[in-house]
């Protein structure tokens, strides 16, 4: 086994409470279809950020870029003041601490659950970062307890419900105790109870002073999980503000396809339509 990198002290230090990520004029496209178009934004340390936008607005692409899985065609991105490039991530001295400090939870849990058992899945990250075997076992057992999935440790991921899969994916990232957590549609495909448990957990995360960036189009959860919002449309940020400020702008929400004019019938038989939040609580 190579050298252990349990407490990575790298060149990536962030002594000042400056931005974790600074994205400048980033452009990215898939097969000539533009996903991000001269996008600029800053993710401050210790804040909870929501990326709001309809499907295809570029939120997931930005998360992949923030996690160093895709690289911009134009523009630049820094992580704690260090340029985040493909070349830098080839350098172990940068890559290992970066992977420890930044965790991404994918929208589709099946992508992230590639190991034969739940235990192996949660142990994958620590093992790749070459923690000692004993530390891996302890950390994985603790994380399984925290996420209340210890009873699933020997199960194969294909036997799990979607809610359980989501918890395992979160555990597999949180076991590394990342300082920055990137979440792609954390409540997508979850039943109401599982979604509520996930939101409770995300609210609890803030106690650890983590920087949490969540991509979502579920407006019901935004006020619970975010301090600040970026609203996306066609690969650009079209609005920023606190959740309360954003949710007070129905025309913005309608223009960015986050709400739609909902036709409904009143008791008197009158039928009409007006902008209406998705997933509303009655």
């Amino acid at each position: 086994m190579g050298s252990q990198i349990e407490n990575p002290k790298s060149e990536i230090e962030n002594p000042m409470p400056g931005p974790v990520f600074d994205v400048r004029e980033v452009t990215f496209s898939y097969n000539h279809v533009t996903a991000l178009d001269h996008l600029s934004l800053t993710i401050p340390t210790g804040r909870r950020i929501a990326l709001l936008g309809a499907n295809g607005s570029g939120k997931s692409t930005l998360l992949r870029i923030l996690d160093g899985l895709a690289f911009p065609e134009k523009g630049s991105i820094t992580f704690c003041g260090e340029a985040l490039t493909e070349e830098r991530l080839r350098d172990s001295a940068f890559a290992y601490p970066f992977r420890r400090r930044v965790g991404l939870v994918f929208q589709n849990p099946d992508i992230q659950l590639f190991s034969p058992t739940v235990f192996d899945e949660v142990a994958f990250g620590p093992l790749q970062l070459q923690w000692s075997r004993e530390k891996v076992r302890t950390a994985v057992d603790n994380m399984l307890e925290v996420m209340k999935i210890a009873h699933l440790k020997d199960r194969s991921p294909h036997h799990l419900s979607t809610g359980e899969k989501k918890r395992v994916t979160l555990a597999s990232v949180l076991v590394l105790d990342p300082e920055v957590l990137l979440l792609d549609e954390p409540t997508a495909s979850l039943d109401p109870k599982s979604a509520s448990q996930m939101i409770d957990f995300l609210i609890g995360l803030h106690g650890g002073a983590k920087t949490v960036v969540t991509s979502t189009h579920d407006l019901d959860i935004v006020e619970d999980i975010a301090d600040d919002c970026f609203v996306f449309q066609m690969g650009r940020v079209v609005a920023t503000g606190t959740p309360a400020e954003i949710l007070r702008q129905p025309s913005l929400l309608e223009q960015t396809n986050l709400v739609h004019a909902h036709r409904h019938i009143h008791a008197g038989g009158e039928t009409h339509s007006h902008p209406h939040l998705h997933g509303h609580k009655h």
């Binding site: 420890r100 994918f106 192996d120 990250g125 093992l127 790749q128 070459q130 891996v136 597999s172 590394l176």
Partner: peptide, 11 residues
């Protein structure tokens, strides 16, 4: 995203 760099380690 979880640190894989071509070498796989397992318990």
């Amino acid at each position: 995203a979880r640190g894989f760099r071509g070498e796989v380690y397992m318990l």
